[in-house]
Design a protein around this nucleic acid. Sequence first.
RNA 1: GGUUCCUUAGCUCAGUUGGUUAGAGCAGCUGACUCUUAAUCAGCGGGUCCAGGGUUCGAGUCCCUGAGGAACCA
Length: 504
Amino acid sequence: MNPNQYRQVRLEKLEKLKALGLDVWPRKAERSIGIGGILEAFGGLDGPALEAEPHTVSVMGRIIAYRDSGKTAFLNLSEGGEKLQIYTRKDALSETEWEVVRLLDMGDFISVTGTLMRTKTGELTVKAARVQFLSKALLPLPEKWHGLQDKELRYRQRYLDLVSNPEVLHTFILRSKILAGIRHYMEQQNYLEVETPMMQPIPGGATARPFITHHNALDMALYLRVAPELYLKRLIVGGFHKVYEINRNFRNEGLSVRHNPEFTMMESYAAGEDLRDVMVLTENLFSEMAKLCGGLERPFGENTLSYATPFRRLTLKDAIAQYGAIDRARLERSEDIVQLAKDAHLEDIAKKSPGVLLGELFEHHAEKQLLQPTFITDYPIELSPLTKTLPDNDLFVDRFELFIGGMELANAYSELNDPVDQLGRFMAQMQEREGGNDEAMMLDLDFVNALEHGFPPTGGLGVGIDRMVMLMTNAASIRDVILFPLMRPQTARDETANDADEPE
RNA sequence: GGUUCCUUAGCUCAGUUGGUUAGAGCAGCUGACUCUUAAUCAGCGGGUCCAGGGUUCGAGUCCCUGAGGAACCA
């Protein structure tokens, strides 16, 4: 039975439905209430209560189960991840409608009008008095018990994944609720949502390789943004007090269970604030979202994570010392740091400064072990070209990254607002770039110019929304929380071989 | 980039040491059944075993190359 044979059989049924005089592709469904609404409004009523005071409803949905027993048939309709049983019997329908019921397939959409009842097993059911045919599915649904299991098909044909795996639909419904929850929380904190360019002439705000594209009319290169940071800061210069943006960033990097080339980030900036204020904002955001999703204790893989505030604070060096079982004093001496880097088999050690090596030692020894929410603070200045230095140490900056479940979830600074210092940091990045580091930042002179017009002390934050949703929904892969994750095209490579000049 | 694993019917999966005509369930088709719950019962149809090459008397199974996917490492 190949897909064409299924189509053929169902096309024939469609012709039979037309022959009954039906509009088989009607424009609108008869519907007085949704399935969710029925469950909410009548889910508490028992059989006698429904009989005493009959409720007539019109519902629509996709047929996800069909149990036919002669002159009756039970159907399950699905809408928005909720399902409802329909009871049809020959003697309760017109001859035409009974014919329609017999020509239905799983996957079809119908609307049913009838009264609510309880079956003998107690299930809430609509007893059909009228049936409206809405749409024919020409192709079969995946297996009804196991759903669609093949991961490749689930990502490539997400619509089938959503239809046949209800928990997937619920994950994405929860994602929407988290997004709404974040906006609600930020609004409560008096932040304004803004939108800044996603196509930028100079990509800035993060050390990452950008995607490049071309604008024909202006004949100029444009980059998909790696971060909105430099534009949001311009808004603080312009007089916005507190702003945030939730949108996509694009980074031309590999794919993994934690990385998708386009991912959703929330960035926020608050004038007059510093890193301590941003920490409070951040931990409250996470704990509020955990509450929204069921409670402060959330399962993640093998662990239970607690979002009770305050979150733990740990300096970068302390984290390396603690998780790497390394004498803390050695992290103060450059030659010891180099030796530790060798011990950890880091690459290109000779080319890297002690600060860069500290960052890599942290990733090597500590990152994956930071399961419970932890703020890591006091980053080396080389890793943080947009951040104010610590008051008592100009080699380290006032920055935190938040780690949960072994992943980086957030990144925040006391923003550098000294334009002269900022220009110097850009120059250092330019040197990095010339040295072959294509992740180093590009010089954005207009941004420096904006700072020269006066930029108040500001606390800034970036939160990885996909990873936050992973935590809240206990998803093992970022692909399980992105509706359409990037996949290599399935078409044969020789059909799309015009990218053959791309060096691999 | 490296290592390991996966790809068999529309879907979910079996397939023994390399040996006859590749199996099951769901889905589908025909029939029975007026309260079913993965409905049940009887019968029927459905395969580019990911692709290409090789070894062999014989390959879904072994080897090589490629494609796509998954996990781990860097």
